[in-house]
Every structure is written in structure tokens, then in C-alpha cells.
Nucleic acid binder design. Structure first.
Length: 427
RNA sequence: GGAGGGAUGGCAGAGUGGACGAUUGCGGCGGUCUUGAAAACCGCUGAGGCCGCAAGGUCUCCGGGGGUUCGAAUCCCUCUCCCUCCGCCA
């Protein structure tokens, strides 16, 4: 959520940003509602001040034994009370409407973000590693997985329909090995504290993380209980410190959580229908930072390199891509994706997305900090980044480490997590 | 699922219609004393909105929402959460 005062004072900047973002939001309606709200507030507060003074006086008159005067004053106060009631009623209409509209305004992009209408204007910041040269035709992971008997698409569909799959044997183990290794590197080498959070949250938590109301259509929920299934650990991690005032000396706080992620993927119908790339249920290790406004952008660089480090240690060629304004998304002020080279699918596949969300979520979730013990609370800045989704990384690992005989060599760093297994050969 | 009891500031805990944004204690911050510290003593110590260049003024907030009243932390309705006991259960 943007600061209402900022919108009021800089409506043109906000509108410019919306154009760059290729987004839309009812800025003029918001400004009008804000005007209305403040006019109503002013009037009602003046009346309240009058009533407070009058009520006090009534008490005094009663005590001094002047019931007639008190009675007359009561009459006047009652009229003021009626008027206050009317104004309150009007405010009860205006305020939720204003808030609802504010919840649909995206974050402002950082000035350094390249401007462009869509992903074609994203900028490759750096590339690491050279794509492996094959002396045979590398297969996509869906062929490798079926042949080796480690990915079972048919049975996944039998149970749950399209975009579900089953991992079996070494496939399931590889998935678990990646997960555990990601968590271990994140906590041991990169300084994150591991969190095991709820995977279902209340609507309010979704609003705090800026997933509601905008992304309602992409989420699963239980209508009976007000439980929303998380599409990423970013949601519970944001809400971990909701409605708290943190000490400035605690920052940055670096958290990491491994959770399942549930997404309807309605808007992606027809895209990535083969393989395990885009599915309704996947897992992800997510990094999350609470920082001061001063260090957020430095932390973003560290966040990306933490995620990148995982891909590199697996010796998988990757590149870091900076999103242009048109591809930034709703909450990020600046965002980098990491893409891994998948020779079988023959594409750069997104395996991480790292964003500085600035105070956008902090405002919604009311997460603040104090620079010194008596200083005014300020909103923290929050950042999030994947590290990493094991399912997506399985694609890169399987396709890069495949051999001509159809087996897959297990990357060195994962062998201790797979009982020393050196190759997946389908036996 | 059933019965009962609760929710007040960073924490503990008073307050049952007007002088209460709230007694007090602890914690925290500042000071006196001290070579320094502790102890003792003194003072300060919630958040947000609106008006204002500012100084300042004003309003709101005692779990959330609604109501009664000139006036609500206090009375009424409702929701949520927590605790105790019983039942059920991986």
C-alpha cells in the first residue's frame, strides 16, 4: 500500500508510475475519497470537541445542583450527537471504500528500474557458467523422468487432475535432498533463521502480504473457515512480525522457510503444460528480510547472490535478469529473477525471484521499527527471494546432468543427502 | 463438540457511568549521588489520524464490530481469541 499522504502530494508521480508499470488504478477516485474523508473528519472532530466540553459541563452543573441548566445543555448536546452520528455514518461509507481502492494500487518502481512494457525489455545483468555441450540430443525432464521411473505423471493426474505429478524412488529423494541442502546452506552459510509456519492463513494475513485482494483468483481457500492456502512462504513470513514495532538494532532480520505452495494458475492456462514446471502444488524454500529503509537495496543484492550461490554450487549455468517496469509485478519496487539453463527443455527457466518490496507490505501489515529507543516508529522495508524451489531445480539438475545412456549423475553437493548415491539409473 | 472464566499500556495488574489515555509495581530512558558501578532518591516513558510552515491545537484507540447515554474501559448485543474442566483424536 502506498502512503496516502504521498499520493495526495504527488498524484502525477503516481500516475506516471502506473503508466510505466503498465498498470491501472483509480487515482482520481482515491484523491476524491481522501478529500471527502478529511472534510468529514474535520467537521465531526470539531463537533466532538464541543460535545466533550459540554458533557464535562453537564457533570459540573449536576454536581452544583443546577439541574435546569444541565437539562438545557443535554438537549443541545443531543442535537450535536445526532449530527455526529450522521457524519460517522458517512465516514463509515467513505473509509472502507478508500482503503479498498488503495489496496489495488501497486508499489512505485525504484528509479533505477529499466522502463519497458513487458518481459522483452528485461535486462540480463550477468551470466554465470557455460551451457554444457552435448554430443547427443539432450532430453527434456519429462522424458527422462518417465524413462527412469522417477516422475509419474499419469498417477498424479489420476489422483488430482492436470498439473499434478508423483515423484517416486530416487526422484522423491532428489527432491528432498535439494530441499534439505537449500535449507542447510541458507541457515549455515547465509545467516538465515529457519521458520516452520502455518500453510493456511486468515484473509487479513493475505491482505498484509499484498496477495489479497488483487490475487484472489490464483488462491485456494476454505470458504467455511476463512483459511487461505499460501502460494508462497512470503505470506506467513511477512505476517510473522505483523503489528509489531521492532528495535532498529535487531535489523536486518533474515528468515527462511520451507513450505508447500498452492496456486490455481488460472491465468496461465495453456502455458507450460508439459513436465513439472508449472503445477498447482510445489515446494519452495523462501528467504525473507526485514530491513531499515537505508539498507534495503544493498540487502537486495546480497539476497540475489545468496540464491545465485545455490545454483552455482550445483554447477548449473544461470543468469540474473532485472525485471523492467512492465514485468515488476504488484508489490516489488525492484526485482531480479535468476534463470537456470535447462538444455532438455531448451530454455532459461526461472528458479528464483528476489524483490525489494520497500514499505509496501510493511504498511499493510503494520510492521515498524524504531531507530532509537524513543524515536518515532517507522515502517520497515521487506524483501523476499526464493532459495529455491526444489521442483524447478530438479528440472535443471536432471536436464544438465543427464548421460547418453539415460542415467542422471547426482551433483557432488547432493550426494551426502542421497545416501552417497552417485547416479540415478532407474533401478 | 459441551460447561465455565477471561482479554486494560513493553510486562504484571487496578479501575464497574463524569476529574480516566487510564492508580500502582516492574522494565526502559534521563538525572542526583559515586573514581566507576550498584543501591537509594527525583523526573520522563503508548500508538495513530486531522488542522497547522511551525509552535501548538484537536480527535480516536482499554481484543474487533455495533448499540444505550449529554457523556462508556465501565452498561447491552455480537464476533474473535486465550485459559480451565469434560469429551473426542493423529
Amino acid at each position: 500500500m502506498l502512503d496516502m499522504a504521498f499520493i495526495r502530494e504527488n498524484p502525477d508521480l503516481v500516475k506516471e508510475a502506473l503508466i510505466k508499470l503498465n498498470a491501472d488504478a483509480p487515482v482520481d477516485e482515491i484523491l476524491e475519497l481522501d478529500r471527502k474523508r478529511r472534510a468529514l473528519l474535520r467537521e465531526t472532530e470539531e463537533l466532538r470537541a464541543e460535545r466533550n466540553a459540554g458533557s464535562k459541563q453537564i457533570g459540573n452543573l449536576m454536581r452544583e445542583g443546577q439541574p435546569d441548566e444541565a437539562e438545557a445543555l443535554k438537549q443541545r448536546m443531543s442535537e450535536i450527537g445526532d449530527r455526529i452520528g450522521e457524519l460517522d455514518e458517512a465516514l463509515r461509507q467513505v473509509e472502507p471504500e478508500l482503503r479498498e481502492k488503495l489496496l489495488w494500487v501497486p508499489n512505485m518502481p525504484h528509479p533505477s528500474v529499466p522502463v519497458g512494457p513487458d518481459e522483452s525489455h528485461n535486462v540480463v545483468v550477468r551470466q554465470w557458467g557455460e551451457p554444457r555441450q552435448f554430443d547427443f540430443e539432450p532430453l527434456p525432464h519429462w522424458d527422462l523422468g518417465e524413462t527412469l521411473g522417477i516422475i509419474d505423471f499419469e498417477r498424479g493426474v489420476k489422483m488430482s487432475g492436470t498439473r499434478f505429478y508423483v515423484l517416486k524412488g530416487a526422484g522423491a529423494t532428489l527432491h528432498r535432498a535439494l530441499t534439505n541442502w537449500f535449507i542447510d546452506v541458507g541457515t549455515r552459510d547465509h545467516g538465515y533463521t529457519e521458520i516452520y509456519p502455518p500453510f493456511m492463513v486468515h484473509a487479513e494475513a493475505m491482505v498484509g502480504a499484498a496477495h489479497l485482494p488483487k490475487f484472489r483468483d490464483n488462491m485456494y481457500y476454505d470458504a467455511e473457515e476463512d483459511f487461505w492456502f499460501i502460494g508462497t512462504a512470503e505470506v506467513p513470513l511477512t505476517n510473522f512480525h505483523r503489528d509489531e514495532i521492532l528495535g532498529g538494532d535487531q535489523l536486518p532480520i533474515k528468515l527462511l522457510a520451507h513450505t508447500p505452495c498452492f496456486r490455481r494458475e488460472k491465468m496461465s492456462a495453456g502455458r507450460d503444460v508439459r513436465g513439472i514446471k508449472r503445477v498447482h502444488q510445489f515446494e519452495k524454500v523462501e528467504m525473507y528480510l526485514f530491513t531499515t529503509p537505508d539498507t534495503g537495496y544493498d540487502e537486495l543484492e546480497t539476497l540475489v547472490s545468496d540464491a545465485e550461490d545455490l545454483v552455482r554450487r550445483l554447477d548449473i549455468p544461470c543468469r540474473v535478469v532485472e525485471m523492467c517496469t512492465g514485468d515488476l509485478g504488484f508489490a516489488a519496487a525492484k526485482k531480479y529473477d535468476i534463470e537456470a539453463w535447462c538444455p532438455g527443455s531448451n530454455e532459461w527457466t526461472e528458479v528464483s525471484s528476489c524483490s525489494n518490496v520497500t514499505d509496501f507490505q510493511a504498511r499493510r501489515a503494520n510492521i515498524r521499527f524504531r531507530r532509537q529507543s524513543k524515536a518515532r516508529p517507522e515502517f520497515v522495508h521487506t524483501l523476499n527471494g526464493s532459495a529455491l524451489p526444489p521442483g524447478r531445480m530438479m528440472i535443471a539438475v536432471m536436464e544438465k546432468y543427464q548421460q547418453e545412456d539415460g542415467t542422471i549423475t547426482v551433483p557432488e553437493v547432493l550426494r551426502p543427502y542421497m545416501g552417497g548415491l552417485e547416479a540415478i539409473d532407474g533401478r
